[in-house]
């Protein structure tokens, strides 16, 4: 037997990280857990409420449960819609970006610009852009006879938010896809040309398979971010008209800060968090499994 020294003191190195995570995540998280199982009548008097908040929340027949379910459906639809638009569009944009010369830099900066704008500013830009009286988009659409009013018409509101998100985030998908495309050796394109393959078959049989890995990342990032969207719709529509664009995060803020309904809000945050986490996990697992099955 080898006489190996066995020493667990190396674990002490982990302590700073643990302390940091404790203060930055675990303690704030536990206060939320704390609220989610208690109720209060004010004066900072809390009493045990068990799983009642959670039961209410997950029962769509209750008031809060109905709101939660409706918002969850809105979130899922929104994420699905923006993913379906941004992924193909981002890939298409990436394919059109030049590969050589000074135009590369110009194109990349132009595409990255929306990503550099603070989210509230994006919201404000689009809020003004969409106004029917002075907004370029809103006024122009109405003047050509298209009924467009993002503060009264749910369809207009949804369209505005989806287009805004596409404008804001397609650049990121495009940059990721561009990096993936750049990594494909020129020999593949040459071989395809010698074969006489069509542009579509080059895309289908070379580019798309080679992009698979970056696209998994793009889907994950875009899903997470779109599922947690808050700032932009809160500035543009404030969740309206009515409840039409009230996503989970907006509803959560209304309940927690507007109605100071701490128990419901805490239960909702936790469930929201768990849903995001598990959906991401499912996405990631399914996509990497698919890839592994192909690769080995």
């Amino acid at each position: 037997m080898l006489d190996k020294p066995w020493n667990n003191r190396a674990w002490f190195f982990v302590i700073p990280v643990l302390v940091f995570v404790l203060f930055s995540s675990i303690i704030p998280m536990m206060t939320v857990v704390n609220y989610s199982v208690q109720d209060t009548m004010g004066q900072n008097n809390f009493f045990w409420n068990g799983a009642a908040w959670f039961q209410n929340l997950l029962d769509p027949t209750t008031d809060i449960g109905g709101r939660f379910a409706a918002a969850l459906v809105r979130n899922l639809i929104f994420s699905l819609v923006v993913l379906c638009i941004e992924l193909p569009l981002g890939i298409a944009v990436a394919i059109c970006i030049p590969r050589h010369g000074w135009r590369v830099g110009a194109a990349l900066v132009l595409i990255a610009l929306p990503l550099l704008i603070p989210w509230t500013v994006v919201g404000t830009i689009w809020q003004i852009f969409a106004r029917q009286d002075i907004g370029l988009l809103g006024a122009a659409l109405n003047s050509v006879g298209i009924h467009y009013n993002d503060t009264q018409d749910p369809t207009s509101a949804w369209a505005t938010i989806v287009v805004m998100d596409v404008w804001h985030w397609t650049g990121m998908v495009a940059l990721l896809a561009y990096a993936g495309l750049k990594a494909i050796p020129d020999a593949f394109y040459q071989a395809a040309r010698i074969d006489g393959a069509s542009r579509w078959s080059v895309f289908r049989n070379i580019e798309l398979p080679k992009l698979q890995k970056v696209l998994v990342i793009a889907v994950l990032l875009r899903f997470m971010e779109s599922f947690m969207i808050y700032t932009e719709p809160s500035v543009v529509t404030g969740g309206g008209p009515g409840e039409a664009t009230s996503f989970l995060s907006l509803d959560l803020v209304k309940i927690a800060l507007g109605q100071v309904d701490l128990g419901n809000a805490a239960a909702m945050s936790l469930v929201y968090n768990l849903i995001t986490l598990s959906l991401c996990w499912i996405f990631f697992t399914v996509m990497t499994q698919l890839e592994q099955r192909k690769g080995s």
């Binding site: 020999a187 593949f188 040459q190 010698i194 070379i206």
Partner: peptide
């Protein structure tokens, strides 16, 4: 054009269609 010439090429990298 290339596609109408009778040419085949093999490269240093292993070039095959990854999805086929």
């Amino acid at each position: 054009p290339v596609r109408r010439r009778s040419v085949a090429m093999v490269y240093q990298q292993f070039v095959n269609y990854p999805s086929l």
